[in-house]
Design a protein around this nucleic acid. Structure first.
Length: 201
DNA sequence: CACTAGATTTTCT
DNA sequence: GAAAATCTAGTGG
């Protein structure tokens, strides 16, 4: 694993679409008791706040499930969906609003063996190429909802950081599994990357 | 390959 | 009661 730097101050206090795009290429690592596991973010989706984004959990009002989306940026919003999957988001929005970025896929880089064991799969391309897979591979669940993303040097918990600039083409398109708000191009991914969940172009 | 059912929470109608 | 920010295992071409 390369040496990682913290994200700039104010990174999370912006439009989720900007944060979603800027999170591509960023490293996500979860240090659990079993060891570290993580990689490079290659696919994200932005969800905006109340009244403005009909596909967002925060569209209607604050509820027990979505309340983390209304809290300060830079923490994890984790929710359970379809009866058996978790999804990990980074809370991000301008001050006083709500919003989050769904982390849809990672290119695995650290703890491949641990990720494979959790997923009961070998192939790296299937370890974390989807939001539910990503959570399973990193051992993320309900208990992480509301937890802060820590700077790389802390060496524990959930970490977001950057290595030297990688530089990759960024593609965008409509969000997946979304009916309302399907016309907005709020999904971002690393062009051509095999770890993306769908539509690699 | 394509398609389908089933896992079963949270919210809205 | 239905749909949703999903994935897997199964069937059939």
């Amino acid at each position: 694993m390369p040496k990682l730097c913290s994200l700039p101050a104010g990174f999370y206090d912006r439009d989720p679409a900007d944060v979603a795009r800027d999170l591509l290429g960023t490293w996500l690592v979860h240090h659990s008791p079993e060891g570290p596991a993580g990689g490079i973010i290659v696919e994200t989706e932005a969800y905006r706040g109340q009244h403005v984004d009909p596909a967002s959990h925060a569209y209607r009002r604050k509820t027990p499930r979505n309340r983390t989306m209304f809290e300060q940026g830079g923490r994890a919003y984790v929710y359970f969906i379809y009866g058996n999957h978790f999804c990990l988001n980074v809370v991000a929005h301008p001050a006083g609003e709500a919003g989050a970025v769904l982390l849809r896929a990672l290119e695995p880089r650290v703890g491949l063996e641990l990720m494979a064991r959790r997923r009961r799969l070998e192939k790296p391309a299937q370890l974390s190429s989807g939001p539910g897979k990503l959570c399973q591979a990193l051992g993320i669940g309900r208990e992480h909802n509301g937890a802060p993303f820590l700077p790389p040097e802390s060496g524990r918990g959930l970490i977001l950081g950057r290595a030297a600039a990688v530089g990759c083409g960024i593609s965008c398109g409509p969000r997946i599994g979304v009916r309302a708000g399907a016309d907005e191009l709020l999904r971002f991914w690393a062009a051509g990357n095999p770890h993306v969940s769908r539509g690699r172009a």
